[in-house]
Design a protein around this nucleic acid. Structure first.
Lengths: 235, 235
DNA sequence: CGCGGCCTTGAACCCCATCAAAGCTGGTGG
DNA sequence: CCACCAGCTTTGATGGGGTTCAAGGCCGCG
């Protein structure tokens, strides 16, 4: 198993989409990304309760923040995609409040300090705000949506996020997860995820073959779910 | 309906529990709290998508961040208790990513700027980290706990938070919400909340009469749920 | 005393979990 | 190039946890 090459660095593209990057920020990011290292699928990037040394940037691959229950139940809190930051906290001696696991092979690097430039710091803050918004969406998804809605909703969210980074074209994106992982995200069993995915296929909402997912009519589906694009900033 | 007096300002006590407050911070907080104003139960403190003018501090009463679906389904994202901050963001032109509603009458004031003192800024950051931790707990609660566990778990979390502010003694605290509101928090119907509460009563985990809830054996219950105290900071 | 809001209870139903087994697929080695 | 294998997907049958609908009881308040 090896990573596909990714010369368009999606991570930087995503951050740039959150706010203008000055040259200082861009240079620092490019240097950081160049020094990225590989973490194998299934390994823990961060353990719950661990002290945070310095924030990291996902350069390539998918990860997830997770919580495990003592009896083995597992819940993914959110997905971490290229351009997402891990372990960004404002206070001293911060402890990780959740573990982070690599869902695929992941390329990772230390995130340049926010002190590099005010523009970068601003982008970090916007990124944090998006992360919070996605956590809130996850809560309503789990609390009030049924299985069919959960699957469709989370796929739309992923599409929205991947589009920001330029990783999708025409509602199509690369989806490297198993249905079981998807279940861990939306609080369903793998069996039921499968049934709902097939229903969504039959009803013509999605196409999903191998690692590619296409959402056929994004606008109509979003409308049906009452979803509107995530916004954290005015002006 | 009127608010009980609260000369021990729980809000300040809670913030002080998050980290040392220097006199500048303490003075600013006391001035802010003194100018608190009343917001009636059921009114919106903040609407989703609204531009944040300046962060607020809950001085007294309970509020909740909420999301509504187009068909009327409602989900509480988290509870806001005295000492909690509303609308604290690091980036410019921040938009509220969720509405905030008063669940009881609420006393509210503008939060002193973090620039007041580094100590205050640190406490704000710790508060934000706790809020994130509680959001994550909420996700696993909704995603992987059954109804009985959800109820017990959220009550333990509330106890933990109220204890921080000195608002509970011996596992007992004032609970001003209806069972329907509790259901909106844990993603259950009011009917089923009621059944689970009664089961928890029968099994001797809780006592709940009127506005007072007592958790009989906190340690045993926490242990049964695999709950450990929320920590966001080392040292 | 009456009324509105909340709590409580019952019965029926449905969504999703669980258990089990059978296909499929992509990757590996012979 | 084919055979094999592990992991993932798919399908079926069954049961249970939670919802829904409906009605009755309780309590505080005017």
């Amino acid at each position: 198993m090896h990573l596909p090459q990714s010369d368009p660095p999606y991570a930087i593209q995503r951050l740039a989409a959150l706010g203008p990057l000055d040259t200082a920020a861009r240079n620092a990011l490019e240097r950081a990304v160049a020094s990225a290292y590989l973490v194998r699928a299934r390994s823990e990037l961060l353990s719950e309760g661990e002290e945070i040394s310095s924030p990291c940037l996902i350069v390539q691959g998918w990860a997830a923040r997770t919580r495990m229950l003592s009896d083995g139940r597992r819940q993914f809190l959110n997905f971490l995609l290229p351009g997402d930051l891990v372990g960004l906290y404002q206070h001293d001696c911060a402890l990780a409040v959740s573990a982070v696991v690599a869902l695929t092979d992941v390329k990772l690097c230390r995130a340049p300090s926010g002190d590099t430039s005010p523009a970068l710091e601003q982008v970090y803050a916007v990124s944090k705000a998006f992360e919070e918004a996605y956590l809130l969406s996850q809560i309503t998804r789990l609390g009030r949506l049924n299985a069919h809605e959960r699957i469709c909703d989370v796929l739309l969210e992923l599409l929205e996020r991947l589009e920001l980074a330029g990783q999708s074209q025409g509602g199509t994106f690369d989806f490297p997860l198993t249905q079981e992982m998807l279940g861990d995200a939306v609080g369903l069993t793998p069996v039921h995820v499968n049934r709902m995915v097939q229903q969504a296929r039959r009803e013509g909402w999605i196409e999903w073959r191998g690692r590619r997912i296409q959402i056929k009519d994004t606008a109509a589906l979003a409308d049906r779910l009452g979803r509107s694009p995530t916004r954290v900033q005015g002006r």
